[in-house]
Amino acid sequence: MNIIIRQETEKDYEISETVVEKAFKNEVHSDHKEQFLVAKLRKSNVFVPELSLVAEINEEIVGHIMFTKLLIKDGEMEYESLALAPVSILPEYQNKGIGSKLILQGLKISKEMGFESVIVLGHDKYYPRFGFSPASKWGIKAPFDVPKESFLALELEDGSLERVTGTVVYSKEFFE
């Protein structure tokens, strides 16, 4: 299976949103509105076009991932980071390593662009394989009530979160 990971283009938007919708259709922990979130994030000031990626097999988009900017705030101190959300793979292509390829490529590009950390709210058995640890390890908290083991952070640069504590501030699009 030849998987191509590339930056999403405007021509891909409608197909990508369909992939996102189908990927989350049967997810229990979902509001089933992730495709609308992706569309809103693309129009926001936290959108990083280079970090909106698609996975293609035989010129068909089968996966999508998006990293957007966020802040970690501690009083007056603010630290820039990235949110990894969502990762979407068409159901018939799940569990074939496509999500991993998207995540690894996204992390690589994030680091190359100078971002130092990534935050994800996700499965605590899945994301540690990419180096994610509970964000509480650094004193980083979610802005809402979530299980500590599901709110994770990753240093793209060693030690980049050592002096970072506070609460994650997601863009307003996550709450609309």
Rank of each mutant, 00 (worst) to 15 (best):
M1E: 08
I4W: 00
I5C: 01
E8L: 08
D12Q: 12
D12M: 10
Y13T: 13
V19F: 09
K22E: 14
F24K: 04
H29R: 15
S30D: 12
K33M: 13
Q35N: 12
Q35I: 00
L37A: 10
L41Y: 15
L41D: 15
R42E: 13
K43I: 03
S44F: 10
V46Y: 11
F47E: 03
F47Y: 13
V48D: 08
V48M: 02
V48I: 14
V48E: 13
P49L: 10
E50D: 10
E50K: 11
L51E: 06
L51Q: 04
L53I: 03
V54F: 00
V54M: 02
E56C: 14
E59Q: 10
I61Y: 02
I65Y: 07
M66N: 14
M66V: 12
K69S: 05
K69C: 02
L71P: 00
I72C: 11
K73D: 09
D74F: 09
G75H: 08
E76V: 08
Y79Q: 10
S81A: 14
L84S: 04
L84N: 03
V87W: 02
S88T: 04
I89F: 10
E92I: 09
Q94C: 09
K96Y: 03
L102S: 00
Q105M: 08
G106Q: 05
L107K: 02
L107A: 02
E116P: 00
V118F: 00
V118M: 01
H123S: 04
H123L: 00
D124C: 13
Y127C: 06
S133Q: 09
P134N: 11
G139N: 02
K141G: 05
A142G: 11
K148H: 15
F151Y: 11
L152S: 05
A153I: 04
A153P: 03
E157V: 06
S160V: 00
R163V: 12
T165L: 09
V169P: 00
S171A: 10
K172L: 01
E173G: 02
E173N: 02
F174N: 01
F174H: 05
E176V: 08
